[in-house]
């Protein structure tokens, strides 16, 4: 059973207050791709991400992970395949110690405590945070918190990693480490971000969202280099592309 393909078909979502956040979003992301979701504030990026693991369910249209449509019934299974890293690590780190926090997911998925601790240690090792295993999460720096929250998701061995603004609040060194880490993952990655330099380094494809609609989609360089398009949607052409000379 492969869960590596993520597909949205004409997804609509309206918040209870009446705000139409998504107005017919469609895309298809295949195995191992790294896709950035960009767009101005309020474009619907976070709303879209919340549909990928069934936190929100579409009012119309559907989201499919592998062969399964995301519904209330399939959501628990989908969440094993789709690891979600939240925008604010403080929302995600709620256990008394780092190790317990990372082990939270594996325990919930029925692993025995020893096996769950083993998994948690491996995940912490993977993100370079083994030394913090016994610390309480709120003592960590923003970069460390981010790394631990990613470990918490990795410990579930997901097929797809979904991240909301992974580089926000990080200092340059923390951001650099994060990018190296993300590049080292073989998972299918879906990253919502305003950090366009990160997109250039980590992703291969871009989905540009604005007003709840996909405005553009394509290879990173092609979309982000389109200055009029970028400016029209509250973005800008990344510096690194400006100075990159095609051979």
């Amino acid at each position: 059973m492969s869960h590596h393909i993520v597909e949205a078909r004409d997804v609509h979502y309206t918040y209870p207050g009446g705000h139409e956040a998504l107005r017919g979003v469609s895309f298809r992301i295949t195995h191992g791709e790294a896709v950035a979701v960009v767009g101005p504030n309020g474009a619907g990026k976070s709303t879209l991400l919340q549909h990928l693991n069934g936190t929100l369910l579409p009012a119309r249209g559907e989201v499919r992970i592998g062969d399964d449509p995301v519904t209330r019934d399939t959501a628990p299974r989908i969440r094993r395949a789709v690891g979600m890293v939240f925008q604010d690590p403080d929302d995600q780190l709620f256990m008394p110690t780092v190790l317990e926090d990372v082990a939270f997911g594996p325990l919930n998925h029925g692993l025995a405590p020893e096996a769950a601790a083993e998994r948690a240690r491996a995940a912490l090792e993977r993100v370079g945070m083994s030394h913090a295993a016994d610390q309480p999460p709120y003592r960590l720096s923003a970069g460390e918190k981010r790394a631990v929250s990613i470990a918490g998701v990795l410990a579930l061995s997901p097929d797809v990693l979904v991240m909301d603004e992974p580089s926000s609040n990080l200092d340059p060194r923390g951001r650099r480490r994060l990018m190296e880490l993300l590049k080292s993952f073989e998972h299918t990655k879906i990253i919502a971000t305003h950090d366009l330099e990160l997109v250039v380094e980590v992703c291969s494809r871009v989905i540009l969202l604005d007003g709840g609609l996909v405005k553009a989609e394509g290879p990173v360089v092609q979309v982000l280099n389109d200055e009029p398009l970028m400016l029209a949607h509250g973005l800008e052409r990344p510096h690194s592309l400006r100075h990159r000379h095609p051979h």
């Binding site: 919340q50 693991n53 936190t55 628990p76 969440r79 094993r80 690891g83 979600m84 939240f86 604010d88 929302d91 995600q92 709620f94 939270f104 997911g105 919930n108 998925h109 918490g152 998701v153 579930l156």
Partner: peptide, 11 residues
């Protein structure tokens, strides 16, 4: 949001 994060990790 915290509850959402717990659900996302299988709570």
């Amino acid at each position: 949001r915290i509850y959402g994060a717990m659900l996302a990790r299988g709570f």
